[in-house]
Nucleic acid binder design. Structure first.
Lengths: 165, 165
DNA sequence: TGTTTATAGTTGTTGCGACAACTAATGGAG
DNA sequence: CTCCATTAGTTGTCGCAACAACTATAAACA
């Protein structure tokens, strides 16, 4: 490996900001959702994806892609949500290897009830404290970094309509 | 609670970028450090803080602040690192409630050996894929968001010289 | 000085995520 | 048609983080 130059002031400042955000923001989001809806942030995103999908159904595979997670992780999380009656699983007709995950009415109520307070938190912690220009900058920075983190391009096709059933 | 307006396109795009980064970047950093040095990102940051401190010693309290963590978490992590011979603990003389954590020579070797590959990864994943202007933007965005996440201002005084012993 | 309150740290329990191993069904290649 | 590789998903184990409960020392106060 060739020698890697140390970071300069500008780079260090940016990197420190970024890892601090990485450490603190997820904790803040999880804390609010846990308190108000007994959900992790990941569970909230998962339920939201199902809520937006046609008929509130997605294949596990598509749901894993949409939430940028692995199938093992998703399977465990869905098992827990199923135990709480928020999601139900049933085998997919067209491909009998596949499983569909569907939001139950109770699950819909949960996500609908949790959303306002969550959005308020996101606004309070992030959106309201940065300028509109900075919002665009965040999106652009994400567009620059994410492709390199996401070799299989899972997140990037979130809304390209790969739905199940 | 007053009604919270839904997010517009601009806000959603920024928010999606941000939570995607929050999900994927830590995993990528942990994976590299785990593979090359059997360290979590948190452990690497911790060792680096000790490495930079005078005499490679800090009080647990100061180390918790510097790594933006809680004392319980830190205590567990230091216990593990101590078991691997990378850190040692000893009671603080001036305040017998306190404990000092000191980097061992082996710990110093570990962090020194891990750093080049880690910096290379940070460059490859983040620094090299954004523009210099975007680096400044990241720092500015962090400055805007972090104070609201960090009520006790732990991170912000990382280098204000609150060292131990 | 004796009592209370605050500070510093450790430990135990619980829950989630990562990884590996496994089952089951599909799609090709011969 | 059969065999094999691939795909979809589940399950078990292990490691780490969060939270609560606890100990011990120091500081505040009366």
């Amino acid at each position: 490996m060739a020698t890697v130059p140390r970071m300069n002031e500008q780079e260090s400042a940016a990197w420190l900001s970024l890892i601090s955000l990485l450490e603190l923001l997820p904790a803040a989001l999880d804390a609010q959702l846990q308190r108000d809806a007994r959900l992790t942030h990941f569970e909230y995103v998962l339920l939201t994806m199902l809520q937006r999908a046609p008929k509130h159904v997605m294949r596990m595979k598509a749901l894993a892609a949409a939430t940028s997670s692995t199938l093992p992780r998703l399977s465990h999380v869905v098992s827990r949500l199923e135990g709480r009656g928020l999601v139900e699983r049933y085998p997919c007709e067209e491909d009998r290897r596949a499983t569909n995950a569907r939001l139950t009415p109770e699950g819909r109520r949960t996500v609908i009830r949790a959303t306002p307070e969550h959005i308020a938190t996101v606004r309070r912690l992030v959106i309201d404290v940065v300028s509109p220009e900075q919002l665009d900058q965040i999106a652009a920075i994400g567009d620059a970094i994410l492709p390199g983190l996401d070799p299989e391009r899972r997140l990037t096709r979130l809304f390209d309509g790969d739905v199940a059933d």
